[in-house]
């Protein structure tokens, strides 16, 4: 699982980065890296079997008072 993930990330980087570097699109490269970092942060722990908190839960808690009306 984790191997697959690393291959996937390597593939994505190989796909995008050379072109961005060649065209000197540094801003895009930074955004790309940021997104990829978020993606890694979310996916690698999951692949390792660590359970991350689900943001839906937080939203559910946030809207709980309104949501009660719909039950």
């Amino acid at each position: 699982m984790i191997v697959l993930l690393i291959i996937l990330f390597a593939g994505i980087i190989l796909l995008e980065v050379p072109g961005l570097v060649k065209k000197k699109m540094w801003r895009e490269l930074a955004a790309f890296a940021a997104y990829l970092a978020i993606g890694m942060a979310l996916s690698i722990p999951q692949a390792l079997g660590i359970r991350l908190p689900n943001p839906s839960k937080a939203i559910e808690a946030l809207f709980k008072p309104v949501a009660e009306l719909l039950k």
Partner: peptide, 10 residues
């Protein structure tokens, strides 16, 4: 080509 290769690998 690279997209195709990536798809293929996936």
């Amino acid at each position: 080509k690279r997209i195709a290769a990536l798809l293929l690998i996936t």
